[in-house]
Nucleic acid binder design. Structure first.
Lengths: 120, 120
DNA sequence: AATACAAGTAACCAAATGGTAACCACTAAT
DNA sequence: ATTAGTGGTTACCATTTGGTTACTTGTATT
């Protein structure tokens, strides 16, 4: 049985640790940001690129593909002209919302703000 | 005013987004795992290396230094022989516990387990 | 005299990640 | 004929991150 507290447990296989599992799935530089952007509604590729201007379309495409492979995100292609592709959270993806919510909450604290402005 | 929901907001500066702030502080490959390991009690350097065997001591030392610079972790050096150094969460560091908790909770779900075993 | 322990550091190298710019397909509008 | 819009892909390169091994410091033990 695997528990949540690993403070004193030797982890032979890194993936026996739930935090390691979670981080290896959504721990990329951009994944939580992307997930957050599509957490309310489906969003088009181009719109995501606008919402996250610092990401290149190559990386955005890669990250979305990965999230789709994990079935956390659903890609819907509409055969229109010009083409339209929408991304949204699947039910599995929505199970990440408590994490995203806590991340956003903490990221809004003064602790986080100060670290960004003073240390980084 | 900065809100938590950015679905339709253009983010000129990435750090205007709370999720981006949070990820740029604790988003490293090892940081949440380290924080999780010291979340209950102070832990020695060598013990951390045992708890997270996949991390090299160079990287562990670097990550701890960064977390210390952010005042999320406190380093206590005991002038004994052989030397003893203990790491623990500061009050600020403890404010991360809801995130760590949600990460661990999600990492324990079947959704996460299946992604690890089937996709990665 | 050599070895061990703990907590690192230094030098060096390998791999992963990220970024840039150009390009493609399709059709409509100019 | 060219340009525009959308959602990418490809090739190439730069940066970041991570890993390995050896070394250090100081005392105690063998």
């Amino acid at each position: 049985m695997v528990t949540t507290n690993f403070s004193q447990r030797f982890i032979e296989n890194p993936h026996d640790c739930p935090v390691t599992r979670a981080m290896s799935i959504i721990g990329g530089k951009w994944k939580p940001i992307i997930l957050n952007c599509i957490s309310n509604k489906s969003v088009r590729f181009g719109k995501l690129n606008q919402l996250i201007p610092a990401i290149s379309n190559k990386v955005l495409a890669n990250e979305l593909k990965e999230l789709e492979a994990y079935s956390l995100v659903k890609r819907s292609e509409y055969k229109e002209l010009p083409p339209r592709v929408e991304y949204e959270l699947t039910t599995k993806g929505k199970s990440l919302m408590p994490i995203l919510h806590e991340l956003a909450k903490w990221g809004n604290t003064n602790v986080a703000r100060k670290i960004i402005t003073e240390v980084r």
